[in-house]
Structure formats: structure tokens, C-alpha cells
Design a protein around this nucleic acid. Sequence first.
DNA 1: ATGCCAGGCACAGCCTGA
Length: 264
Amino acid sequence: MKALKIATFNINGIRSRLPALLAWLEREQPDIACLQELKAPDAQFPARELEAAGYGCLHLGQPSWNGVAILARDSEPLAVRWGLPGMEDDTQSRYLEAAVHGILVGCLYLPNGNPQPGPKFEYKLRWFDCLIEHAKGLLDSEHPALLAGDFNVVPTDLDIYDPRSWLKDALLQPQSRDRYQQLLDQGWTDAIRHLHPDARVYTFWDYFRNHWARNAGLRIDHLLLNRQLAPYLKAAGVDAWVRNEPKASDHAPVWIELGTRKRR
DNA sequence: ATGCCAGGCACAGCCTGA
């Protein structure tokens, strides 16, 4: 295995955030970057700017909302799937899968699901069930595989500053958490939690109520590794400095480092 | 119970996010 740094970043608008994206890529030099919430149609994806920064790109956009992309440093990602199997009628751009640097990478933006109960929550659960079904095949693959993105799930109360004001939120519902646990039970490794079992790690701080300054965050962006890939996991963290920049996304990038040899 | 902030688009107030 080649030593690699892989990151996922909900960028919340790639056009308004392009300078921030380029500054982050320049400073952190991820080999693979999964992006969510492009909020731009494919015709307006800034492919030239990213190519000039040394990244090959695959993107699945739509006007105004959603949108996912996979970036590969000094390489072209090889597209495997556009869209999630089982969600062929989905009009929202939320899943992209590619082979990059020898790894099968699924980049996902799972539906938020608010308000719940209601049709948006039903859509979230249906999308999640399709992801679980598809993840089985990736997990059992002989290839190293990774699911990376904004899962819109706070897995446990360790992953939120204080659950009290979020108890009715779709991100904390038992139906959402049970489904995330189903992925882990299949055999996926949650990289951050595996290496930092007791730490308070957040990836999202909303724009309201001074949440960033108070470090009132949630951990909802995740990197899940299959059994072929997990032994190479060496380090994992959050580039929290990105959230502190002017005009920041409400998410920060989450990353892993893979070593060249299996970890003991 | 609602707004709080922010991006996108019908470029003017909505809708959506989480």
C-alpha cells in the first residue's frame, strides 16, 4: 500500500468556497479529497482551477443543492458509479464512487432528514437502507474500500457537545443511529473513533448561536474503512483550522493517513 | 415554539441546511 492522506469535506458551496478549498488543498495536500454540498451544476464545477492545483476531478452536481465530487492528487479518479444503487429514481446528487490510487472510494452526502417525522425523514431512511445494502458488497470486496462523506448522523452522545437541544433532530434519532451502527456491525471501521475512542471530536459547527467560538460541535462527517483497508490506518484527525477562516464552511475537513505497512 | 447564520436563486425574500 502506498502512503496516502484521504479527506472528506462538506464544502457548503464550491463556488463561494473555492479560495478556501484551494488554500486547504495547498496546505494539507490530501491525495484524495471527497467533497459534498457543491451547490453547483456540473457546468459550473471549477475543474480548471483544481487541475491547475494538481487535482484530477470527478463530480456529480446539480443546481442549488447537494452535489458530490472526488479529487485525486496527480491522478485521474476512475469512475465506478454515479448515484447509489437502489436509488435510481433519486433526483438528488448524493453518491459518487471511483477507483483512486488503488482504493475503491464511495463519496456520499446522506440526506439530512429534517424535519422528522415526515417525508424528508422517510427519504433519509430509504437512502440509508440502500447505502447499507450497497456497503455489504464493498465490505466483502477483495479490494481496499472506503466510504467517506457527510453521513448526517451523530453516532453517539460522545459525538455532540450536548444532545439536549437536538433530541428531536433527525441526526440523533434512533432510526438514524441504528442504521449507522448496522454499517459498523457489517465490519466497517470508523477511523476517528477507532484511533480516538474517548475523545470529543467534532466536524460540524453550525452558524447559529456562536457554536464555533464555543466549540459546540457535532461529529457527522465520517471515514469508514473495510477489512482490506483498515489494517493500514495510521492516523486520523480534523483540520479544524479551516473552520476558523473567514467565510468558512460550517464543516471542517476530516482526514486519515494510511501507512505503507499494516499496523500491529 | 422560533430564530439564530449562510448560500443559492425568481436577485427579493424564500427555501434549505443540520
